[in-house]
């Protein structure tokens, strides 16, 4: 079996250089590749374009790369929880492209499935449609307008899984799955960090979410903080 294991986060991101485009998995702070983000901060590379649903919070997730001004452009669907992000965006330091969440997911999917474009009704008649081709299709008896959206072309995808094996097969846990499987499929080179790395043969093939063919490098993260953005609980009894 092909061995995809690299030593650690530093090793995994060693050839990510200035001005590259990265897909970064996670939703909010849930299922983000914490160890790779830290390694990129240490690496001090600049001019990155990051495609990720959110932009982290001020002091965690992609917010860490914003603080150090390593991100030139952010492509996301929702950026509401980050004051430094807002400041950089309003001052023009940071270029921002906001796109619908489903469009973001499906543009990743298209890349992983080898389809250059998809058509979606999301954003028709809004500023998201500006400059895009609009086509009308009749489907299931309903005639609607759809926007043409392009598959992402990213240098690297960086994702986080719960378990993985040395062949790069991945299993995600609960809602930490989110964008990770589609981003894993969409990178020219995909790096997966996992909470637990096992030998081949130890994962049930029927339970694999992302087959190792999509994963070029895998390592077990040194530690996971797994910060919760909003702890909401109810009292017992």
């Amino acid at each position: 079996m092909i061995n995809r294991v690299v030593k650690n986060a530093e090793d995994a991101v060693k050839d990510i250089t200035d001005n590259m485009t990265l897909l970064v998995g996670g939703f909010g702070l849930c299922g983000i590749p914490e160890n790779c983000i830290s390694a990129l901060v240490k690496k001090k590379i600049k001019g990155l374009t990051c495609i990720s649903n959110n932009a982290g919070v001020d002091d965690f997730g992609l917010g860490l790369l914003l603080q150090t001004k390593q991100i030139k452009k952010m492509i996301a669907s929702y950026v509401g929880e980050n004051a430094e992000f807002e400041r950089q965006m309003l001052s023009g330091e940071l270029e921002v492209e906001l796109i619908p969440q489903g469009t973001l997911a499906t543009r990743c999917l298209a890349a992983g499935y080898g389809m250059p474009v998809i058509y979606t009704p999301a954003g028709v008649g809004t500023e998201v449609a500006i400059g895009k081709e609009v086509r009308t299709f009749t489907y299931n008896g309903e005639t609607k307008e759809y926007l043409e959206e392009k598959a992402f072309e990213a240098d690297f995808a960086i994702v986080k899984a719960w378990k993985g094996d040395s062949a790069g097969n991945l299993i995600f846990r609960s809602t930490a799955r989110n964008f990770n499987p589609m981003m894993a499929m969409a990178g020219k080179i995909t790096i997966a960090e996992v909470e637990e790395l096992v030998e081949v043969g130890q994962l049930d093939p029927d339970q694999i979410h992302t087959p190792g063919i999509y994963v070029h490098r895998i390592f077990q993260g040194e530690k996971y903080e797994k910060r919760i953005e909003q702890v909401t609980v109810r009292k017992k009894g």
Binding site: S174, T175, I228, R234
Partner: peptide, 16 residues
């Protein structure tokens, strides 16, 4: 319930 929150299980509003 208090103490049973799971960082991997949130809703679209990022709440546990």
């Amino acid at each position: 319930f208090e103490g049973e929150e799971d960082a991997d299980l949130i809703n679209a509003g990022k709440q546990t």
